[in-house]
């Protein structure tokens, strides 16, 4: 039997012409199932919850995490969760920032100008205008909503409307991609696998559900000039969470909690 297994394995290279198709179907179906399960248990963006909810997510004897949660409590009081669907960084960023604009009309005006101008930058970089303008319009509409309605409830329900919410994510991904490509000379050094910045953007930034790393965060923070602080909470020893500010040395406007593979929003 083992031999047969080995044969199976070694022949995969040959069979791929035929089998990858069927296997893609299977993978797709499985992904759909998983996504559906995640979707039914997690809203795209949750309500604001007391930070103590974190405690219940880990075993009481899980001292590494329990100590770090305690450490988080020193600075933060609340958390807002996002659906772990690979778009969480963009959704968390988008929501946290727009929410902060509800109470900061000066920043709102600045942000609105930057956002309005951003489409032109993308078009000048070669993005097709008629395909990106829907995403841009949705983004601008939401900023307008923050300006005119000033309603957190409206913002939250927009972010939980899959199509609106995903369009925002698409646009933030495009902004990230655009900035990375404009500054490709700088970012090239941080890209693994011998890919150029453009390839990286088309594989890791623009497609939906692709997770974000430092490079994405720094690009989006700079593209919109919104400094982001990320608290990193993982299995590392030390009992305290570490944070990074993107870009370094700036006064952060929004606070995110990173646990391996996922971002949520933190509130002081």
């Amino acid at each position: 039997m083992k031999m047969a297994d080995e044969l199976q394995e070694s022949s995969q290279g040959e069979m791929e012409g035929v089998n990858c198709l069927a296997s893609d179907e299977a993978i797709l179906a499985q992904q759909d199932r998983i996504q559906h399960e995640i979707a039914t248990t997690n809203p795209l963006v949750s309500g604001r919850q007391d930070l103590s909810v974190l405690k219940g997510e880990y075993a009481a004897e899980d001292t590494i995490y329990q100590l770090k949660i305690k450490d988080l409590h020193k600075t933060y009081s609340h958390i807002r969760k996002t659906r772990p669907d690979g778009n969480c960084f963009y959704r968390a960023f988008g929501f946290a920032h727009l929410e902060s604009l509800l109470e900061d009309s000066k920043e709102l005006q600045r942000f609105k100008d930057v956002a309005a101008k951003s489409k032109l930058d993308l078009v000048n970089q070669g993005f097709t205008e008629f395909t990106i303008e829907d995403f841009h319009n949705t983004f601008m509409d939401l900023i307008d909503l923050c300006e005119k309605q000033q309603s957190l409830g409206e913002l939250l329900s927009s972010f939980n409307d899959q199509s609106v919410s995903d369009y925002i994510v698409v646009y933030l991904r495009l902004l990230t991609s655009g900035y990375l490509q404009r500054e490709h000379g700088f970012f090239q050094h941080f890209i693994e696998g011998g890919r150029c910045v453009k390839e990286f953007c088309q594989q890791e930034v623009e497609p939906m559900s692709k997770e974000s790393d430092h490079i994405h965060i720094i690009a989006l923070a700079k593209a919109l000039n919104v400094p982001i602080l990320v608290e990193y909470m993982d299995r590392g020893e030390g009992g305290t969470v570490n944070h990074h500010i993107f870009p370094e040395g700036r006064e952060p406007r929004i606070f995110l909690l990173y646990r391996p593979g996922h971002y949520d929003i933190l509130y002081k």
Partner: peptide, 12 residues
């Protein structure tokens, strides 16, 4: 084939 998710919404 192995990146079915990499369709990009900005394609047409």
């Amino acid at each position: 084939g192995h990146h079915p998710e990499t369709w990009q919404p900005s394609w047409s």
